[in-house]
Design a binder for these strands. Structure first.
Lengths: 158, 158
DNA sequence: GGAAAAAAGGATATGTTATAACGTACTTGC
DNA sequence: GCAAGTACGTTATAACATATCCTTTTTTCC
């Protein structure tokens, strides 16, 4: 088993390979600093604000990290389809299936904080139709459904 | 014609009446300060950030206004279905048809800044279905389509 | 009318999210 | 090596939002 650098979160080979592939496609450089941010997000496995992420990275690396650095890394990761931004919460979440470019829809549980990333072709088609009817050329579509997930709904009823 | 107070934007009777009706339904008080914020937003007729709104109100009223006041008024107006928040832009926009409670979808033009508020029952049904399939009980759904509106697309091609 | 309660609003400070401006260092390709 | 482009560090600041505390206004109830 390969030793993990002390200053980065462990990152499963699966995710690293996918990330490398996505970046290679576009000729983008997946540097250690960028990978460290990505690894931290995957390790945490919940939506993080940029400043939560800074705190985690600072703890992990034992040094100060400027907000701007993290924002740049987040931009990079989003540009390459590895991370999504939850617009309504102003938080960031690693993509669940970064094997291909896609638009996602999110189910955000207000009780446990869990976020489900779903991909509905039917919904995307309908959204395109709506845009079309209004003579609108869409670029990027945000769909975020806030509510209570199944697990929490069951617990609530007890 | 009734004289308009010097310290508030003019507000068409149509909008005032609708606002009064919405608030009366819920036993909420549509005070002058709240109405002034609403009037300013309607007068401006484009999405405004909270701080843009503060600046406009300060100019109009010739006095300092604390951010918190405006945020409170915005909360009130949103709670009563008179104003929407555009999550992806962190701006606020008066509702286009505040005659009934509803969820809206937005088409945001990145070129001219215009926002179209649409209401698609088909889309809402589909979103409910998607939530249902995942055992999710939705509460509030954000749909924001960013792109280029018809008018701007035509101009671009010249 | 007048006291108590509730709602709204003002003032000051602070917390949170994001970007600007500028310089340095590290690739890449010739 | 050297020029060009990209990444990244540092400091400062802009932009967005809320906390706390207190005063004023409105409502309610007697």
């Amino acid at each position: 088993m390969a030793r993990q650098s002390a200053s980065a979160a462990p990152l499963a080979a699966k995710w690293r390979k996918l990330a490398e592939a996505r970046c290679a496609e576009k000729g983008e450089r997946l540097t250690p600093a960028r990978l460290a941010v990505y690894a931290e997000m995957l390790a945490c496995n919940r939506p993080l604000s940029a400043y939560e992420l800074i705190a985690l990275l600072e703890q992990r690396q034992g040094r100060k990290i400027a907000p701007l650095s993290v924002y740049r890394h987040l931009d990079f990761l989003m540009r390459n389809g590895l991370v999504h931004r939850l617009q309504s919460a102003q938080t960031y979440l690693p993509c669940d299936h970064p094997d291909h470019p896609h638009e996602s829809q999110f189910l955000l549980c207000s009780s446990c904080g869990h976020v489900d990333e779903v991909e509905s072709r039917g919904l995307e088609t309908l959204l395109s139709q709506i845009a079309d009817e209004h003579g609108f050329r869409p670029d990027d579509t945000v769909v975020e459904i806030k509510g209570v997930c199944g697990t929490c709904a069951v617990e609530d009823s007890h």
